[in-house]
Simulated assay, not measured.
Amino acid sequence: MPDVLQVLATSAALALIDQLRQQHGDLMFHQSGGCCDGSAPMCYPRNEFQIGDQDILLGHIGEQPFYINASQYEYWQHTQLIIDIVPGRGGMFSLEGPTGQRFLTRSRLYSEEEWRWLTHQKRVVQAP
């Protein structure tokens, strides 16, 4: 079975990531469990957001690290996160705000085969 990614991005999201990276340098993403932007990943200049003990590196999109808060991961651990864009304004501090587009997290359940592979590869992270 090919490598099963836990987070990936649509081609539209990858184009926006590239645009933002050209403007701001290296980026990072954080999926929090907050009430206001809980389903919207936030995009920051790399190293301008403090990663905490409760944050898990889930993977990379557009070669930029994607972290998720452990409490949010508990809800979504059985799903592949798919980062997309839609029209609108992003979170107040997210870099895509002025572009008229915002990042959005979609998800799909892993197949049984994918879940077994992730478990066997020890890619399923036990939340701290």
Rank of each mutant, 00 (worst) to 15 (best):
1 M>K: 13
1 M>W: 07
1 M>Q: 13
2 P>R: 14
3 D>M: 14
3 D>G: 07
3 D>H: 14
4 V>A: 02
4 V>Q: 09
5 L>M: 12
6 Q>H: 12
6 Q>K: 14
6 Q>T: 14
7 V>A: 08
7 V>C: 06
7 V>S: 01
9 A>T: 09
9 A>E: 01
10 T>M: 03
10 T>C: 05
11 S>F: 01
13 A>V: 04
15 A>D: 15
15 A>M: 11
15 A>L: 10
18 D>W: 00
18 D>P: 00
18 D>M: 08
19 Q>E: 15
19 Q>A: 14
22 Q>H: 11
23 Q>G: 08
23 Q>C: 04
24 H>P: 01
27 L>R: 07
27 L>F: 07
27 L>A: 12
29 F>M: 14
29 F>T: 01
30 H>D: 01
31 Q>A: 14
32 S>F: 02
33 G>T: 03
34 G>V: 03
35 C>R: 12
35 C>D: 12
36 C>Y: 12
38 G>K: 10
38 G>V: 10
38 G>P: 06
39 S>M: 12
39 S>I: 11
42 M>L: 13
42 M>D: 07
43 C>D: 06
44 Y>V: 03
44 Y>F: 15
46 R>D: 00
46 R>I: 06
48 E>R: 13
48 E>T: 15
48 E>H: 12
49 F>Q: 03
50 Q>H: 06
51 I>R: 09
52 G>H: 04
54 Q>G: 09
54 Q>W: 08
56 I>N: 02
57 L>P: 02
59 G>M: 02
61 I>T: 08
61 I>L: 07
61 I>K: 04
62 G>R: 06
63 E>W: 01
63 E>Y: 05
64 Q>C: 09
65 P>H: 09
66 F>S: 10
67 Y>E: 04
68 I>Q: 04
69 N>A: 08
70 A>E: 11
71 S>P: 00
74 E>W: 02
74 E>P: 00
76 W>K: 07
78 H>P: 05
79 T>C: 09
79 T>H: 11
79 T>W: 00
80 Q>F: 00
80 Q>C: 05
81 L>M: 11
81 L>Q: 07
82 I>E: 02
82 I>C: 04
82 I>K: 02
83 I>W: 02
84 D>S: 07
85 I>P: 00
85 I>S: 01
86 V>G: 04
86 V>Y: 05
86 V>C: 02
88 G>K: 11
88 G>R: 03
91 G>T: 06
92 M>V: 15
93 F>I: 09
94 S>P: 02
95 L>E: 08
96 E>W: 06
96 E>N: 12
99 T>A: 08
104 L>P: 00
106 R>F: 13
107 S>K: 12
107 S>M: 12
107 S>Y: 09
108 R>W: 02
108 R>C: 07
108 R>N: 08
108 R>F: 03
108 R>S: 03
110 Y>F: 14
110 Y>I: 05
111 S>V: 08
112 E>V: 11
112 E>G: 10
113 E>Q: 13
114 E>F: 06
115 W>P: 04
115 W>I: 04
116 R>L: 14
116 R>E: 15
117 W>C: 09
117 W>M: 12
117 W>E: 13
118 L>D: 10
118 L>M: 09
120 H>I: 09
121 Q>T: 14
123 R>C: 10
123 R>L: 13
123 R>S: 11
123 R>F: 13
124 V>E: 13
125 V>H: 15
126 Q>A: 15
127 A>D: 08
127 A>T: 15
127 A>H: 12
128 P>A: 14
